[in-house]
Design a protein around this nucleic acid. Structure first.
Lengths: 242, 242
DNA sequence: CGAATGTCTACTGTCAACAAATAAAGCAAT
DNA sequence: ATTGCTTTATTTGTTGACAGTAGACATTCG
């Protein structure tokens, strides 16, 4: 049996977990805010048992942290932890692109192309682009590639991570229009490589996008990069000339 | 084995989770075996509450699967799911190597070199190499690089995955001596790159090792690979640790 | 006035029991 | 013997209560 939780209904615990989880994702709970068992139990009209279980589920999805005797609280990533997360996520993203290019059927490829066009359509409204809409389009495209990467484990792992990452995605989209332009260029190059089924180049470009995003986040969070003029590279790909 | 009276710094749930988790990792529980709440509760002399929580923790570590109304059972990966896991893990491994090369101090580098020598020392006994010892040495080296990659999230994510992966690692080590020799060659090349702080080459070699391992596992599990040059071998069937 | 200490409150950790649902056993009919 | 249904039994889901701890507050002493 797969890791994916295909079962949605029954069980109060799962219902509460998805509800609170969505709320956390949407930012209705502040990072670090305490998730009191009793308060949540009262709110849903249940006892503390299912709530306790729901909090465990949230911890499994890394949306909450549980400290013994201190209870659960909304996950609060330190700046360096955010960087770490995007680093790991970037590696998975590059893998997803690589696998998608290798395994996608023609129809799936068409679907991806359509999503790429959607991104360009939205970006065409420069300089008046809705950051949220732009972000959503990018996320949709990456989710599509992920879903058709043919690797369920990757989908689950990265999907879980995305729930966290997207809380900070707004930072990326709102910041520096120049960044958005660079992002679009890289994205175009990556999509070209994807269309021509050049898994290697696509993976490299994916990794570049990730590193660009990372540098932007670093700047915003005020964390100095390890190597300012780092050359972007793929998880396994060769160097490319700038 | 009643420990309810013992004053533990950790909660009962966490204690039970680590205990059962270790047992699963060691193969004392068969894949797919049911983890009955009541049986475990009786065994540890506690009520079902903490046990339930422990099972949630095990699910978080992906050592167990919880299906609503059907209870928890030891995770049972299908052959293709094993491939998927090693694929994801490989990507993380390459990242770990890359980061380690970039960020390791001189002392940490020395430590890694020592572990590499240990691997070669064990492998020198060819063709009479203890697979378990060999596996342990390789795992120690990769764990060292991971621990000093400077990315806590990567360490946690991959560490969790390793607990699963190492159940199937024996397959790799026991199989085909030729594979071990190729593995050693690649490993040597990677270590050279690591020593000279060539993150790019090191990462590439890491990825190659991963892909080699993957092809071996594919052969053993009888799953056709995406690469054409792979020779279909006699499907000896999934000979997994019980 | 500040620091250390004692008390209080709120919360978590744990338990035992009840309710609901699934899996297993038993039995009848073909 | 096999199939289908009914009944029983075991297991999970949930509850409310009790016990112990962490943190806040007030108190006392240097």
């Amino acid at each position: 049996m797969s890791l994916a939780a295909a079962d949605l209904p029954l069980s109060l615990a799962r219902h509460i977990a998805t509800q609170i989880g969505d709320e956390i994702e949407q930012g209705l709970w502040k990072p670090g805010e305490r998730l009191s068992e009793e308060v949540i139990a009262r709110r849903f009209g249940v006892s503390r048992g299912p709530v306790r279980e729901a909090l465990q589920i949230l911890a499994r999805e890394e949306l909450a942290v549980i400290r013994p005797r201190l209870g659960a609280s909304v996950i609060q990533l330190q700046p360096d932890e955010i960087i770490d997360m995007f680093e790991v996520r970037g590696s998975l993203y590059a893998l997803a692109i690589r696998l998608f290019v290798r395994r996608a059927t023609a129809a799936e490829m068409d679907g991806y192309i359509a999503l790429g066009q959607e991104i360009r359509r939205i970006a065409a409204g420069e300089p008046d682009v809705d950051p949220r809409e732009f972000a959503r389009a990018i996320q949709a495209a990456s989710a599509y590639a992920l879903a058709h990467s043919g690797n369920a484990r990757l989908k689950a792992t990265m999907g879980r991570m995305n729930r966290q990452a997207y809380r900070y995605y707004a930072i990326l989209m709102h910041s520096i229009p120049a960044h958005r332009r660079a992002l679009l260029e890289m994205s175009a190059r990556m999509n070209d490589a994807i269309h021509t089924r050049d898994a290697e180049t696509a993976s490299i470009e994916a990794w570049r996008i990730v590193e660009l995003n990372q540098s932007v986040i670093r700047r915003i969070l005020g964390i100095p990069g390890t190597q300012p003029e780092e050359t972007p590279c793929s998880p396994a790909g060769p160097h490319l000339p700038d």
